[in-house]
Amino acid sequence: MSMIGDIARLPAGVPETAARPQVSVATAEDYVALLKPRVMSLVVFTALVGLMAAPGPIHPVLAFTALLCIAVGAGASGALNMWYDADIDALMTRTAGRPIPRRRIAPGEALGFGITLAGFAVVVLGLLVSWLAAALLAFTILFYVVVYTMWLKRSTPQNIVIGGAAGALPPVIGWAAVTGSITLEPLLLFLIIFVWTPPHFWALALIRTEDYARAGVPMLPVVAGAAATRRQIMIYSLLLIPVGASPWLFGYAGLVYGLTALVAGALMLAFAWRVWTRTEGKAATTAARQMFIYSILYLFGLFAVLLVESIAGRVVG
């Protein structure tokens, strides 16, 4: 960003319009867009469930602080992801409208913004709530930015399988914020999101295969083809049924959750079946889009029931 001081050094003959200071025109809304607010909302929600499901008390102010830090940490990850991926974002229809490809924010500004927020989120979470939770948040941010964004995303079709670990950690962070420890129950919540991530993203990738191919991102449909992707979606959706019900099977959740998980899991499998069997034309696109939308509802629904059961448990217990 050239500043006003540079103007004095402009050579003679340069038009006056060129001398106007190149000050950023990014608004606060552009910076909010860097935080990927929709992704952040799911992160905050799953972290809230981990926090509420954890045994033991936590003051509401500290709970709010923990969630705020997790939200900001997730936002920082999003900003750093957009900084690194600006080149491929510009090539894909879905991401071309992001602030850096639109030239609203310079890449360096996004980098500074992301690092600052990440640092603040981790330090504040550690100082005010729990250093274990802060360490997990730092690991999550580093994993998402370095392991997923910088390494896996451009090098393997298993990118979102392994990278999905970053998105699955927020309930564990929420749990650690309350208890200062990690037990089997938050790991089951981790596992649900971890197994849910591949069919969720591959449904989107089926719709956006050309986008990913143009940008050179080796998503599964680009590298292995649509048929292999549909098969993988079926396998992961099948696996998701017992994994989704595991908190109930292990006795951590009630019958309402168990039944919800089984029914919602069966529906997920039904949507996956439609994706598998409808392979041509508009029907294939519609099936993949419905699978993608339903998968969001699935995760939200399961965690919502867990949240209600946790709140009920806290009120009664």
Partner: peptide
């Protein structure tokens, strides 16, 4: 009467104000 080349445009002023408030 020439405009001051160091003067920010209205858009730049608006966006700077938006960032400052945030």
């Amino acid at each position: 009467n020439k405009p001051d080349p160091t003067e920010l445009t209205e858009e730049q002023k608006r966006s700077r104000r938006s960032r400052s408030i945030a």
